[in-house]
Design a binder for these strands. Structure first.
Lengths: 335, 335
DNA sequence: CACCCCATTGATATCGTTGTCAAAGAACAT
DNA sequence: ATGTTCTTTGACAACGATATCAATGGGGTG
């Protein structure tokens, strides 16, 4: 039924092995032979049988995405990016949900990789920030690529974003709008992005000669509820800030809810900013000023550098930092 | 390195083929032999090599999820459900984004299935509502399971939800809250759920002896923007309803935005209801009254019935209708 | 011209499973 | 006791690719 290498080899009048060489891009194949074989491949519509390749070559052609992140829209974007990157390469993706708090995690993942013969992992926050977890993968010689790691060893495969700079410029933007009393809601403490964003905020405040009011700095965990709770706390105090920068959009939405319940008008009485540009950022009113990261592109690149390494093309596709984009919307008012 | 059938066969002192029979649950294996083999399998931690199985048996052990639905949270839930169902079975999932409007769709999907040797498809709305598309799969003898199909042939594999009944009871609930002037935003016309929900609304209105005001019935397409636009239109007219039922939460959120921009207070001056219980439903204020469908469970079941068919267990796992749950939140006010 | 080297190619074994088919033994009917 | 059928088991081929290693031949060197 299906076209096999054998059919191609007959059509091109070469040996099976030569066809194999061509489709695997091996060296030492004469250019004329290559052209001939590729013509036959195209003519017959040949697609190598993944199972046979995998069985013989011991590669599974499967990547796994490791995540423990309740943000569905982030997950969807990451997946979408990886799938697109895989599409043309013959690799497949499986998704593996994790529990970063589990003490069996390290063992479980090693077992998972061995059981399913996964070729490589793509690791997302907060797992990407757990040094011992990554070290364990190294120890077991498991290949992986990291999205937004806390430390970026030059030899590791990773993609990162400029969280610090983005938080710095968003904060500067808020200041430019005339705000001097600004609150901040920190993200999940296990995510390195939380610290980068906070540091960006702090430095922007200081470099503008302003001071931080500790009462307006609250610990959140990226969830809507944590933002809501932080808002309730802040609005309970006698003096409230004129603007609040939340480390992500969900928390900003939470604050907005608590503000609206308190009768505070956004942005007239309180300006708000988030981070991520999740769908919710423009599905509430007023729409959130935020920072958009190219999550899909980052994820795609994370997959690409991993695959490039497998295919021996590591030189062409390297770790990279992506730039975020500031999006100013209605929730930020000029004082 | 890895444990193979051969190792197990030696340990259990039977032939390779007998081990194969046991792990595939084939008939005609003596009970004592079976026990013996399973003990060895467990002892050695044997896991069959998927590639070898696949190569020999011509099955890929891969399912594909077909979707063309911009709702990320819905997609995430569907995926999550399917992955969970696959986990214990040895099947894998690949995700395939489609364009339901493409005239090459039918051909593309057939090619996709053949190229990747996909064992079966899981089809989501709106593809699940395209009769000719499904018919084409039948013609090519491609196995599939449908989520929320418009017509439910008894012999087809599908899972459905009680959209009509849920819309009927949500509408009744709104009426019970004292509303007599109720608007409705229809969903995407290609989704059968849109019509089911609308019919449920219409019948509830009529059975309560009330009348429909055509000016308050607007066509949407499930997007936030279509809800927003519908809201703008409705609020532009001289008389506005006391409540609006949108066919999903995104559109309800869109209406809420347009209401708030118009200065209308929800729920004091306008009650709102959505459908789906997406994250946004409780991330805006006031939180939306809505209907929660067990999307994850439905998707898991869709995968299960498909896999059951492959494994010859079709009798045990059948097509099924799932019940939705009414969730009343702040956006619905008693008049 | 003889020699060696390297680029190119192919014959054959092999990956780990399942399919095919036949054999052995148990159970049952005649 | 004999033939027939059914259950249980195993030997061996096969799936479709890649790995290994040897063969071929053109080009360079002394």
């Amino acid at each position: 039924m299906a076209v096999t290498i054998k059919d191609v080899s007959k059509d091109a009048a070469v040996s099976i092995k030569t066809v194999s060489r061509v489709i695997n891009n091996e060296a030492n194949v004469a250019e004329t032979t290559k052209v001939k074989v590729l013509a036959s491949v195209k003519k017959l519509g040949f697609k190598p049988n993944k199972s046979a390749q995998s069985l013989r070559s011991k590669k599974s052609y499967m990547l796994a995405l490791l995540y423990d992140n309740p943000n569905k829209s982030y997950l969807a974007d990451v997946q979408s990016g990886i799938f697109n990157a895989c599409k043309s390469t013959g690799y497949n993706l499986v998704i593996q949900e994790c529990d970063y708090k589990s003490n069996k995690l390290k063992k479980d993942i090693v077992k998972f990789v061995e059981d399913f013969r996964i070729d490589g992992l793509i690791v997302t926050p907060p797992l990407s920030d757990m040094e011992d977890f990554l070290q364990n993968l190294d120890n077991h010689e498991i290949e992986y690529s990291v999205i937004a790691p806390s430390t970026r060893k030059p030899e590791s495969l990773h993609v990162s974003s400029n969280d610090y700079e983005a938080a710095y410029s968003l904060t500067s933007e808020i200041i430019k709008h005339g705000h001097e009393e600004i609150g901040f809601i920190k993200g999940h403490p296990k995510h390195s992005a939380s610290h980068l964003r906070f540091n960006g905020f702090v430095d922007a405040i200081k470099n503008n000669g302003m001071r931080i009011n500790e009462h307006w700095i609250k610990q959140g965990n990226f969830s809507f509820k944590s933002g809501f709770d932080a808002g309730v706390e802040i609005f309970h105090s006698e003096k409230i800030p004129t603007a609040i920068f939340a480390s992500n959009d969900s928390m900003a939405a939470g604050i907005m809810k608590s503000a609206q319940m308190k009768g505070l008008k956004v942005p007239h009485e309180l300006s708000l900013a988030g981070f991520d540009d999740s769908p919710i950022a423009h599905q509430i009113w007023p729409a959130l000023t935020t920072v958009k990261q190219p999550v899909e592109k980052m994820a795609a690149h994370a997959a690409k550098i991993l695959i490039a390494k497998f295919d021996g093309l590591a030189e062409q596709t390297k770790s990279k930092e992506f730039k975020s984009e500031l999006i100013v919307r209605e929730s930020l008012k000029t004082l």
